[in-house]
Design a protein around this nucleic acid. Structure first.
Lengths: 359, 359
DNA sequence: CTGAAAGCGCTTACAG
DNA sequence: CTGAAAGCGCTTACAG
């Protein structure tokens, strides 16, 4: 009945154990690990060996408490259900991980008050920095971030009134250009579907770009031709299409602020017996994977989600570590022309009017 | 030039400040907040008022260090690009938030070695618990979790050899039943597309269920009728279809272990001039949003992602707080029959064989 | 280059 | 029910 060597799953080694085994002080052990240049090579080596032997792994909570840095970053996105955010978050986490940071994630469901709560919880959890989306927040959000002095960047937009470094695209301009494309095909009966009934400055900007392009051609959209939805889902697109089709059967061009809604429009239109793009043209925005796969494939605007996520990580870490990133990082959002847009039906009809062809 | 009241953004209040203002000891202030029953009501009230006045908010890192609980949970999923994980993570975070926990998120890209690294990083960050996916891990993963004694559950499967509480579906059984449905339609020329070339026990189980159902009808699939893909993407499905179609033009039933791949098969088949489901039937698995929207809509198996995420949160918190959850939580995975499956062409052809109709 | 000591902001036995 | 004190596992001026 020999007494067992009593290694009850070897209670996790701490730095003091390492120091003891390496016969150095706690301070030296700490330095050997974190500021190796400050320690004589042979001593450093001894510490490293001890770390190996004990399987030592630092306690980040303790480290965080004493150093004031948690090496943790929080992101709050509207939803993971939208592929542009799912992909962006993935890229963000990827780069954060490479640079030694861990990601805390939350979603706001497009609700500013929820976003505020999430931000608050993350700050309490001691994040070194925050990645936000857009530039419209609850009234208390920015004051909280400022007063707590936590680093923050925002994404999917390229400028910020709040003075946050922004990494994204010019939503308004990109939507404007996409709409110019549709105009060039001779359309003059428009409808717009935008997920702006919950605060969403990206979709708001997209819608404005669309309306501006249309207005420049002398066309004004009555409000009944604009449907605002809460969620950017296929179902939202479907329902919006049904309402618009009933009220304005003459519409030939449906402009949507997200692909999911555009997919809803296309599929619902097909079910209603319309031909796309023969009878109606549809554009989306985002270029999610499915956009290229439905029939007809969607004309849309590509959002560079991976670049946004990756640069957000880099810029935020820069900010945390004292290197000021640019306040504006404007990424390209290219128009992707596919099969859901074509010349307006009137152009092919016997009595095509000159108006439709004027550009 | 009066001296400014010098409130340089009011350095964040700490508990000691609260205690001082409320004229109680640090210990009492702490108790008033965390174990209110232990403190006389009037004193508790004084503390609460002080908290209000100072806008005190606890430092979770310090709290974590001294209490040994971080109120933080880590999840590592294969990818957010697959909607079933995006939705599951969203539900997980939702419930975790409601119960006072914050989510640390990472993705492994279906690579066990990356999963191990992520788990390790999270443990160092002091998570109280871990949410994993599936039941196949790198060799070091479970030993690490065990030795660090951190709570863990696994998801998307309903049992675990590793003795982790599992919350999910019976992938094999569900795929078996879906395949029975296809068999009942008279098909006997099959092909299987599975994302199993990277370790994936969910898809592996699904494939096995498919093969078993087929085998029970006396049909054996040669290996050239099984295509293994790495990623469960539309593109994977497309490419697999092209290979299978070329090698086995007689195949009438394509069984896919995920919807995204099934969407790839359907769209590619249509482009190749086949009619779905007239010429071929296709089934997917997951029931992601797009499955119901493509034309024809996909016959698939519904995975209850929200329930999985929510229950994973509940069971993990239970484990953390000392309430043992069930080791097996088997959720329903119902077959959703839509338009991508129909009677085998041979049944409609002039010289239909008795064989095809035998069940 | 190295060590002794204070401190990060909390929690929690231990006494009273 | 309340308080004084030790302790969680690190980092980092401060001396030497």
């Amino acid at each position: 009945m020999a007494k067992a060597p009593a290694s009850p799953l070897a209670a996790r080694a701490k730095l003091a154990d390492v120091a003891h085994l390496a016969k150095v002080s706690l301070a030296t052990a700490s330095r050997a690990l974190n500021q190796p240049a400050m320690v004589r090579p042979e001593i450093r080596e001894r510490v490293l060996v001890a770390v190996q032997m004990l399987g030592y792994t630092p306690d980040r909570m303790a480290k965080a408490l004493s150093s004031g840095r948690s090496h943790t970053v929080g992101a709050v996105v509207p939803t993971l259900g939208n592929a542009i955010f799912a992909d962006g978050v993935e890229a963000l986490q990827e780069r954060l991980g490479e640079r030694g940071y861990t990601l805390l994630l939350a979603h706001s469901q497009y609700r500013p008050d929820r976003e505020f709560l999430q931000v608050k919880a993350m700050i309490e959890h001691g994040v070194d920095g925050l990645v936000l989306v857009g530039d419209t927040f609850a009234a208390e959000t920015m004051p909280l971030i400022r007063s707590r002095n936590v680093a923050a960047v925002t994404t999917y937009v390229c400028t910020s009134r709040n003075n946050l470094p922004a990494i994204g695209i010019d939503n308004r301009q990109a939507a404007y250009e996409a709409t110019r494309h549709v105009l060039s095909l001779g359309h003059h009966e428009f409808a717009v579907i935008a997920n702006t009934s919950l605060p969403n400055d990206r979709s708001q900007a997209r819608m404005e770009g669309m309306l501006q392009a249309i207005a420049e051609e002398g066309i004004r959209l009555t409000s009944s031709r604009i449907v605002e939805a809460a969620q950017p889902t296929i179902t939202s697109g479907r329902e919006a299409f049904d309402r618009l089709r009933k009220a304005h059967p003459s519409v030939t061009a449906y402009l949507c602020t997200t692909d999911a809604m555009a997919v809803g429009v296309v599929t619902q239109a097909l079910r209603a017996g319309l031909r796309v793009p023969r009878d109606i043209s549809v554009i989306g925005f985002d270029d999610v994977e499915i956009a290229a796969e439905i029939d007809p494939p969607l004309t849309t605007v590509r959002v560079p989600t991976v670049e946004i996520g990756t640069l957000a990580a880099d810029h935020l870490i820069g900010l945390i570590e004292g290197i000021a990133p640019p306040l504006t990082t404007r990424l390209d959002a290219s128009l992707v022309i596919r099969g859901s847009t074509a010349a307006a039906p009137s152009l092919r009809a016997p009595k095509a009017l000159g108006r439709a062809a004027r550009r």
